[in-house]
């Protein structure tokens, strides 16, 4: 895997040939977020050999930005005349989850979380609640965000004014998973997750420590830390967390590979799954801890283990 060119201000996703996954008649209305989300969800389902999931849970910080911008610009340009209905339909935040359901003909529970940098985690929490009720459920859960064309520049403009500024370019992507409480063929265990709105730098390592403890683990058991480091001021949180772990613990700064977008932690989880290895592969890694936050708020800790 290559690190991104960090001098660029935006980096688009490496889009696959969507025609291999989505019929052209359906794809013609889909903006990148919808295409990425639908394909990522379908790839995950295929891997899990599931055709009908028991729930579809989607997280997206900014939703379908491209169609939102298209509709907004059309109405501003033409003084509310000749506005494109398709862009409005496609601009709603639940378009990705709805299109996954429509494509599969899946009438099951369907929900969409749009809570900034905790959108993916919210979907994951919902999945864990569903699994407490129905352990054998197979749930599609994921996060997706697209760059769009204009608003991202304003977000970037504000970020660049910060000192020190983030060195990570704005980006986009989709990461979807099939989760279940039945292990089946799975080899990776999403052990636990904890999120909170606000916490001080002094308290963060204790919060991480107590989550480890609740799961019968200590800092020494974690072989790899995956951190959302950006170079911005709030990196002090990542330093506080990593200082609590032994020096030899591997550190990966996932935004160098994924870029900055609200649901990029989905990429970190995917990365952890790759590192822990798929069924019947060898990996010397056992436990990975992911920690992310945004501007010192909305913290999340996820522990992933090889089982």
């Amino acid at each position: 895997m290559e690190a991104l060119n960090i001098t660029a201000s935006t980096v688009a996703a490496k889009h696959p040939a969507y025609r291999n996954y989505i019929p052209p008649a359906a794809a013609r209305r889909m903006a990148p977020a919808v295409k990425m989300g639908v394909v990522a969800a379908n790839v995950a389902l295929e891997k899990a050999q599931i055709t009908q999931p028991d729930a579809i849970l989607t997280g997206s910080g900014l939703g379908c930005m491209q169609d939102t911008e298209k509709f907004l610009n059309a109405l501003l340009e033409n003084n509310e005349q000749f506005v494109p209905p398709t862009a409005f339909i496609q601009s709603t935040h639940n378009t990705v989850g709805a299109q996954i359901a429509l494509g599969l003909g899946c009438k099951a529970y369907n929900n969409t979380y749009v809570h900034g940098s905790l959108s993916f985690e919210s979907a994951l929490l919902d999945a864990s609640l569903l699994l407490e009720d129905k352990p054998d459920a197979k749930i599609v859960v994921g996060g997706v965000d697209e760059l769009g064309t204009e608003f991202v520049n304003y977000v970037k403009m504000l970020a660049e004014k910060e000192t020190p500024a983030s060195k990570i370019p704005m980006s986009e992507g989709a990461s979807f998973f099939v989760v279940s409480s039945e292990m089946g063929n799975a080899q990776v265990l999403l052990r636990d997750m904890n999120t909170c709105r606000e916490i001080s730098v002094a308290e963060i390592s204790n919060r991480v420590g107590s989550l480890l403890k609740e799961n019968g683990l200590s800092e020494e058991d974690i072989d790899t830390l995956i951190l959302g480091t950006t170079g911005a001021e709030s990196d002090v949180y990542y330093k506080a967390v990593s200082d609590a772990f032994p020096k030899q613990t591997t550190q990966i700064h996932f935004k160098k590979y994924a870029g900055q977008y609200n649901t990029s932690i989905g990429f970190a989880v995917w990365f952890a799954v790759q590192l822990l290895g798929e069924k019947n592969t060898v990996s010397d890694r056992k436990n990975i801890l992911i920690y992310n936050q945004e501007d010192g708020r909305n913290h999340s800790v996820i522990i992933v283990s090889r089982c």
Partner: peptide
């Protein structure tokens, strides 16, 4: 051509514009 009701809405805008 396989158009549907959403396309019909788009064509209504096209006729207007």
């Amino acid at each position: 051509l396989g158009l549907d009701s959403i396309d019909a809405l788009e064509l209504i805008v096209l006729l207007d514009k």
